[in-house]
Simulated assay, not measured.
Amino acid sequence: MSNKNLFLKSGFIRAPIQNGVGRFVPQLQRIVLKFCKTYGASQGLREFIEQDLVDFAKENPSVVVYLKPRRHRGPVIVAEYLNGDRVWMSVHNKTHSEITKWIEVLRTQQGDISSLRLRKYQYTDYPSVQGPWTPFTFKDPELNTAQLPDPHFGANDRLPITATEKLRLLFEKQKLSDVKTAE
């Protein structure tokens, strides 16, 4: 493990507030669009504000949108999430379509999980003492040393015959009856 993990906060990746169980709770709480009214690098963000911002606000009523004009500064988007994370993104010289895509990315994610050191790969609200379930959890331990195929473990001898086997048996009976009638 490198020492960069010493400075990352640790946690779990999990659906917050049982998200998706019962109802969906959008995680984006607030988005702040900081731009300059005259600066050339803010052109894409100004176009987004003029053309798509009202539609974005109508489609996402749970997201509070702030516009913050600043003189002679680069354009910035700051997204704040329900879990307290803040994602700061510079959109310097980005086009209108790129900004639309980035805002959609910010809207659909649950915060800044790239700066999170994972403690475990799995998480549950109700942990089990026995560990995670696998397909081999309730198998008979004798199966580990058995030579397969073994009629004791498999139902191969008790399976009903297949349609192909049935046809083959009928064909052989018909052949035998044809031989007997020919004699």
Rank of each mutant, 00 (worst) to 15 (best):
N60P: 12
I99E: 00
V54A: 07
T134P: 07
L28K: 13
R117V: 02
L167Q: 13
F35Q: 07
K68A: 14
R119Q: 03
L45M: 03
K4E: 08
L118R: 07
N19H: 12
R107I: 03
E98A: 02
I103C: 06
Q51F: 14
P75R: 09
E98W: 00
Q130P: 11
G40D: 00
L159M: 08
P69F: 10
Y81R: 11
H92A: 00
L170Q: 05
R70E: 11
A155C: 06
K175Y: 14
Y66N: 15
K37D: 01
V87N: 02
G84D: 09
G20N: 12
L169G: 05
V25H: 04
G131F: 00
R71S: 03
L118V: 02
E183N: 05
G154D: 03
I113V: 12
Q109Y: 08
S114W: 04
Y121K: 10
E47R: 14
S42G: 12
T164D: 13
Q109P: 06
N83M: 01
K180H: 07
Y121W: 06
S97H: 15
G20E: 10
M1H: 05
R14A: 05
G154A: 11
E142Q: 15
V64I: 02
N93E: 15
Q43A: 15
R168M: 13
N144H: 01
F24M: 14
T137I: 08
R73S: 13
K139I: 05
T124P: 10
K58Y: 06
R46E: 02
D55Y: 09
V129K: 08
H92M: 04
A79W: 01
G74N: 03
L8Y: 14
L148D: 10
P132Y: 09
S10M: 12
V78M: 12
T181I: 02
N156K: 08
Y126G: 04
N156G: 12
P149G: 05
L28D: 06
P160F: 15
A163C: 00
M89Y: 01
I103Y: 00
P26S: 07
I113P: 00
K101P: 04
L148C: 05
S177K: 13
R30F: 07
V78W: 08
N83K: 00
F48N: 04
I99H: 03
S62P: 00
G20P: 02
V64T: 13
E59K: 07
F56N: 05
G74M: 06
F171H: 07
L170T: 03
V21K: 15
L28A: 14
W133S: 01
N19Y: 06
Q43N: 11
P69H: 07
V65K: 03
K94Q: 10
L8I: 11
L6A: 01
V21R: 14
D85G: 04
L170D: 13
Q29I: 10
L106K: 14
W88E: 11
K4S: 03
H96S: 12
P132T: 12
K94A: 11
E172D: 02
F48I: 03
D157E: 11
E183D: 11
R14W: 00
L28Y: 10
L106P: 08
S42W: 07
D140A: 01
W102K: 10
R30D: 11
F7M: 01
E50P: 11
L143W: 13
R30C: 08
E104A: 15
Q147W: 01
P151R: 08
K58M: 09
F7T: 00
L176R: 13
Q122F: 15
R71L: 06
Q122P: 04
E50M: 01
G11C: 15
G111T: 08
T145G: 02
L6N: 07
